[in-house]
Design a protein around this nucleic acid. Structure first.
Lengths: 192, 192
DNA sequence: TCATATTTGGAACAATCGTTCCATTATTGT
DNA sequence: ACAATAATGGAACGATTGTTCCAAATATGA
């Protein structure tokens, strides 16, 4: 009986995600979203809820997507330590090529200090990425690829934390060579 | 002939700075500033210019202040490498004690990608802090405290980049022990 | 003491914010 | 073909945005 949606909610969510990603939460207005998503106001509210709910969906969607990208990058590696290196190289590649800093990092600093729901999404995402790296580092340890006395949990967090630094450095300096050297240095630190 | 200002512009600028620091630029309204600074709207516009100009002054002021704090932390050290360590420990201390992430880092992610003036202030601040660390690392190299084949320019940038990571990790995890371990690990990496 | 200059408080501005509502349009299953 | 249902377009909401303006208050140097 009922009429169907004339648009793909998932596809339009990506349009919103890209805008939030670029401008941040507060600098993005509903009017901007109406234009970017090419959707009526009412359709947005009806499908996704209010601005905040829409943002949370965008952020969750984004975090999962990027985690999959890291997984995919790691999957092609021949050894565990190579997989870790591939993830770091993926972060470097993203820094240099995506044209805007990671939405997870941007949202951490714009919102996560005050917004519990945002914090929870980001914590969950961080934990999952941490798990991925921790498993790889443990395997690398078992295979003798890295030292036994490394704290792999801490090392996984350290690697992820370094990604924030790559983005911050690139935003300010736009120095590709420098950021590349920093990523190479991190890889070298992890391998030894 | 003329009447004098009934307030200390520098002191009230700090009030504004603290609010911008806590909430970010877009989430802070002029009404918020009027209340926090305990100043009339007209007085704010007359003394500092518009919201954006006020923010730039706050950010510049903040960056200089924090750079002085790092310098002061380094000044007490017995050797160059100890001075570098002291700066890293200062960043750790700030992360754990200030209750909000560094305004420089927050502003990098909220504004520096689109706002040229903000970017310029942050670039200048980054360069100056880089200089401080670079000089210390060079001296440490001459003194044989760190290896000769380290690229000190890159290493200085790497240290600063790590600060972003400390803040991001602490915002999301609130894990003091973890962040402390990460800072200790960085120190260890630099020293060897 | 007094004219002068500037601060001050608060009203008011137009523009935009996020959100809601409703009449209209369109598509569905029967 | 038809009644039912949901999407659609757009007006409209009150609240808040950043900013300007002006009359009143106030402290200044001569």
């Amino acid at each position: 009986m009922a009429r169907n949606k004339a648009f793909d909610p998932e596809e339009r969510l990506e349009k919103a995600r890209d805008l939030f990603w670029e401008r941040g939460y507060h600098a993005t207005s509903m009017q901007d979203l109406v234009e970017a998503m090419q959707l009526n106001r009412a359709s947005i509210y009806d499908t996704y809820g209010d601005k905040h709910a829409l943002f949370l969906q965008c952020l969750g969607n984004y975090a999962t997507d990027k985690r999959e990208e890291y997984k995919a990058a790691a999957a092609g590696a021949l050894s565990s330590i190579d997989a870790v290196e591939a993830i770091i190289r993926k972060a470097l590649e993203r820094t240099l090529q995506e044209g805007k800093a990671c939405m997870v990092v941007k949202s951490s600093f714009e919102l996560a200090e005050t917004d519990k729901e945002v914090n929870s999404i980001l914590k969950n995402d961080g934990d999952r990425l941490n798990d991925i790296l921790e498993v790889l580092l443990m395997k690398a340890q078992s295979a003798g690829e890295i030292s036994k006395d490394r704290d792999v949990k801490m090392l996984a967090s350290y690697i992820i934390a370094n990604f924030s630094g790559l983005w911050q450095t690139y935003i300010i300096s736009k120095n590709e060579k420098l950021v590349t050297q920093m990523a190479e240095f991190l890889i070298q630190v992890i391998r030894q």
